[in-house]
Design a protein around this nucleic acid. Structure first.
Lengths: 150, 150
DNA sequence: TTAGATGCAAACGGTTTGCAAACCA
DNA sequence: TGGTTTGCAAACCGTTTGCATCTAA
């Protein structure tokens, strides 16, 4: 059963403002607004949606700030089932995978040693060497009504 | 060890023209040109690159034809490591995964029961039900020079 | 004081769409 | 022939960039 899987649902996000400052970036009003909004989000978000929620912040700044957090590893960019992609706060610092709810967009993270073990088994069977991998699970989280009303 | 993994390197692509006709689409010169070019390709390709190789075919037609094959399941759209995406012919008819060479872009398919088994194990541990999944392996295929000269 | 950050608007890359002309069945 | 498909160009979407202005440190 539950050998080495760990869900991150309960993990509090690290302070995005700390991420900013430890990266040598300034703490400005637009960045603080974005950071505090992101820290409230359970679901994945698009840059566009974020921008809509912060009409006082310029679109370019939203994109620049997202990229800044991306580079710092504070958020992840992940694929949705339809091929587009969304961003999500990273609670876990290291390599992990995501579940994305196909109904409401809620994103969760998990680490499962079984996944990594599988990859290394596959590497024996596959020509060439495995440099990296990407795994996304699309789920129906069954808690959608609370989040998205659907 | 090698229990149920199957690589698709040698599998001949099914005739894309058949795919067209069985889908009730017409066999036109542009579509035939695209189909025959695709059937020669080992590596993944972008719509843009395809269009460059077929200057006599309009860009819109390239995109339309790609989507047509996508809908028919004859080609797959898959992610590259840098977040962009490429297309690749599907030899295997059913659910499978891809390896993408980070050097030359060569794409291969594999089916591994172990992957599917892992997913169903994970489903016991993960809140909600797993609807679908996506797994991409990024590899260094070590045959790059032959394909891309690099 | 000044390097860094912002907002705007324009540019961008990839993709889709409207439409009249061309084409296959 | 008539419904499909094509090519073009313009529109589109998400994202990045140039630049003058503003601001945190």
């Amino acid at each position: 059963m539950s050998e080495s899987i760990s869900m991150a649902s309960e993990a509090p996000s690290p302070s995005l403002l700390e991420v900013l400052e430890s990266g040598g970036h300034r703490s400005t009003a637009p960045r603080r607004a974005i950071a505090s909004l992101l820290e409230k989000k359970q679901e994945g978000f698009s840059a566009d949606a974020l921008s809509d929620e912060l009409p006082s912040v310029g679109r370019a700044t939203v994109y620049r700030t997202i990229n800044l957090f991306l580079e710092a590893g504070a958020i992840c960019k992940l694929a949705t089932m339809n091929g587009s992609h969304i961003y999500s706060i990273c609670g876990v610092g290291h390599h992990h995978h995501h579940t994305v709810c196909v109904e409401c967009g809620a994103v969760d993270e998990f680490r499962a040693d079984a996944v990594e073990r599988l990859i290394s088994e596959l590497s024996a069977e596959i020509p060439g060497e495995i440099v990296s991998h990407r795994l996304e699970l699309f789920v129906n989280c069954h808690s959608c009504p609370e989040i998205a009303g659907g």
